[in-house]
């Protein structure tokens, strides 16, 4: 089976200089898998660099629409059964692909996430490894495992980090890909994983597929820290509004969100919570549409999704 390696890029020519050769080498090493750059309206010379240095790599030039739209366009353009999405700041190891494909062939699996290491090979504050979640204080609190001993075996996880994940293209299309509700970025991969579990599919973590991620090298360049915090908090609220279908939990969650907003003054610091709620409210209509869609498609309850993603039940 072939998989298309899709690198998501926005003004990241300097990042592509490192990440693209590694992806091309890994694709060749695993049996000549196609490689594509899905470009979110770069204004630097990314196109020139790719077309000159890697003529065999397909360059998908897109209008400016954000990370999720670039992923969706890349997945739609893939002509293979499987696809692997990679951030332009993710450098893959040469043998990262075969274990991903092997895990994808397990029954009922939708997606498999890579093992994310810092560029120096450490796991300190590394995000995206063996992810799990818990509904608490009005939001889904995410946990990223950083204990090396817990990251040795293929196992279930809540969502595959959007920076490096493999998936079945047909299931991706059934899910509708990444939801534009989360524009410009953050939480769309959590949403994807949550919805996949909700449909009875599985998401796995594959520690043999090692990638190196220079976290924040793109977002840190494009936005100020407070803006990143605001986007992330807004999307955390929207995620809860869209996905928490259990009526009792949902009522409790909204009450907690009210209290959460008061923490702006009582505690302070980032993110500005009331502003996050207000920003999220401006997308309420869109969130309601997504929630209705989720209500129609969901076959697994909220609690069961979290339990299954921790490997606690069948």
């Amino acid at each position: 089976m072939k998989a298309t390696l899709i690198i998501i890029n926005h003004n990241g020519r300097h990042l592509l200089e490192t990440s693209l050769p590694a992806a091309v080498a890994a694709a060749r090493c695993a049996g000549d898998h196609p490689v594509m750059v899905s470009d979110d309206a770069s204004t630097d010379d990314s196109l020139l660099f790719v077309s000159k240095s890697f003529p065999a790599v397909r360059f998908l030039a897109l209008p400016k629409a954000g990370f999720g739209a670039a992923c969706n366009a890349g997945a739609a353009a893939a002509e293979t059964e499987l696809a692997v999405i990679l951030n332009n700041d993710v450098v893959v190891s040469e043998d990262f692909l075969p274990p991903l494909l092997e895990s994808l062939s397990q029954p009922n699996v939708f997606a498999v996430g890579c093992k994310f290491l810092n560029p120096d090979g450490s796991l300190t504050h590394a995000l995206g490894n063996r992810t799990s979640g818990e509904w608490r204080k009005g939001l889904l609190y995410l946990h990223h495992e950083t204990d090396p001993e817990m990251l040795t075996e293929t196992c279930p996880q809540l969502y595959p980090n959007g920076g490096g994940m493999a998936f079945w293209c047909d299931k991706w299309r059934q899910l509708g890909g990444l939801d534009p509700l989360y524009h410009p970025i953050y939480w769309e991969d959590v949403d994807l994983g949550y919805r996949a579990w909700g449909r009875g599919w599985r998401v796995l973590y594959e520690p043999r597929s090692i990638v190196y991620h220079d976290q924040g090298s793109t977002m840190g360049r494009l936005h100020r820290p407070w803006r990143i915090e605001l986007i992330s908090a807004k999307n955390a609220v929207l995620f809860a509004w869209k996905n928490l279908l259990d009526p009792k939990l949902f009522r409790r969650l909204l009450c907690e969100q009210v209290r959460w907003a008061a923490d702006d003054i009582v505690i302070g610091g980032l993110p500005p919570r009331t502003r996050a709620l207000w920003t999220a409210a401006r997308q309420l209509r869109q969130a309601a549409r997504s929630r209705a869609q989720e209500q129609r498609e969901r076959i697994v309850s909220d609690q069961e999704i979290l339990a299954r993603s921790r490997g606690e039940s069948a």
Binding site: D246, R285, R296, R298
Partner: peptide, 18 residues
């Protein structure tokens, strides 16, 4: 949010996993 989202959810039907 509660009113709008709950109405949207109820109108959508399904309810298999809620």
């Amino acid at each position: 949010a509660f009113c709008w989202l709950r109405v949207a959810q109820l109108l959508a039907g399904g309810r298999r996993a809620s």
